[in-house]
Design a protein around this nucleic acid. Structure first.
Lengths: 235, 235
DNA sequence: CTCTGTGAAGTCATTCACAGCG
DNA sequence: CGCTGTGAATGACTTCACAGAG
């Protein structure tokens, strides 16, 4: 194990590996080699070995990795053995959808509060979640009482920086931002952006380009299939 | 102008620049230098000049860039002068929230259809959108009639690959995937992933190691950056 | 003099290739 | 043997630094 700085590209891949290991474990598979794992996402096997080697020597030469064992290690590395409590700011369409989203739970996150500044919404339930909308002015108090450690910003772009400032004032250190805006955070506060506008415009750019996809050589089809990378990103 | 291959990191930044230029134009600002623009997002000014130089010489030495002019150029480069018609597959919380989301319109995207396989949902309206839920079996027909060119996958992970296959069969070439799953796309079809699980787990990793300084990385615009290799691919 | 556009240098990430363990 | 772990090589992206236009 080394103690270098770990790139976010690496930790993102750890999430991907973990997802796969969970499926393998559910399928009753006991061991897997870096090559077999790499094949699932068209990644290079050395990349996987290197990503894992930053944190320890989890493999067995000649065998590969024990699925259950590696799963537990990555879960610990990502801090998913600790529960996190989430507060959502903004009870619009997106905030409400997120409050009702159950994909949080598999990563040990629970939504415990939702906030808005709209009088019409405060005090009402959102969707089928057993959550009442709090006045955003009560954020500091609710964060303390509910021990919230992660904030989700789901407000319009023009309000996002103001909301982030409020969030940082409560001492929260981890923020998921859905507003299409570049936010300025204090050192020590991590803001992860999920930017739908950028994702859409990237698709638009792709559609606007004349595709070079006309393949003349059957071999290049194969080599592309073999080498295709995993895709991915965000929301 | 050059005709090299453009990295997705570059096009993502173009979206960011465009967003900023729109604000500058609204504020009545006429010109801006690469340095002033860079200061807005703590980027390097050379990066901005280089990104723009891939597509032409838009600046004026000694002055900078004309805001309105550059705005139009980037809009064209990203293909945002062409309207796109979006179909959403999955009328759950997320699909419904997206159908009602108006952030699409600023990028010239319009949601024109939503699909589900649940009898209870088919034929009903979703939210306040004037959209009726179609049976997912009628996808091919509706895509043709409505001239849909972008699909949004908002179904559970286990159904995502099956839905993507159906989407590709209709001839759609651009897909935004919200399901936490690695999907395999044909060459010539671009799948952009928005993976909430990865974003959350990245925050969890950060919280598990508060000693690590938080550097806002421009690359983390999307939760997981794909590798860029053959001409296109993923997120 | 200011600010762009761009080769060259620097930094960071991925892939290769192989020693060595089981 | 097969497969991990890892230094070395390669490749990608960013930043520097400056010539030259306005």
């Amino acid at each position: 194990m080394k103690s270098e700085k770990i790139s976010e590209l690496t930790t993102n891949r750890l999430s991907v590996y973990l997802r796969c290991l969970n499926l393998l474990a559910a399928a009753g598979i006991k061991t897997i080699s870096s090559q077999a794992l790499a094949d699932q996402f068209n990644l290079n096997s050395a990349q996987i070995r290197k990503d894992l080697a930053y944190f320890g020597e989890f493999g067995v030469r000649g065998v590969g990795y024990f699925v259950e064992d590696l799963r537990e290690h990555i879960t610990k590395i990502l801090g998913l053995d600790n529960a996190h409590r989430v507060g959502i700011i903004g009870a619009g369409n997106l905030g409400t959808a997120l409050a009702n989203y159950n994909g949080f739970t598999t990563s040990n996150f629970t939504v415990v509060a939702i906030f808005d500044n709209d009088r019409e919404k405060i005090g009402k339930q959102v969707g089928r979640a057993p959550l009442m909308v709090h006045d955003v002015k009560r954020m500091a108090r609710v964060v303390r009482d509910e021990e919230i450690d992660v904030a989700v910003i789901a407000v319009p772009a023009r309000a996002a920086q103001r909301v982030l400032n409020q969030v940082m004032a409560t001492g929260i250190k981890a923020v998921l931002n859905f507003a299409p805006a570049r936010l300025h955070a204090r050192l020590g506060v991590k803001v992860k952006n999920v930017d739908l506008t950028i994702a859409l415009e990237s698709l638009s750019y792709f559609l606007a380009r004349p595709q070079v996809a006309c393949i003349t050589n059957p071999r290049s089809v194969l080599s592309y299939e073999e080498k295709r990378k995993p895709e991915e990103h965000e929301l």
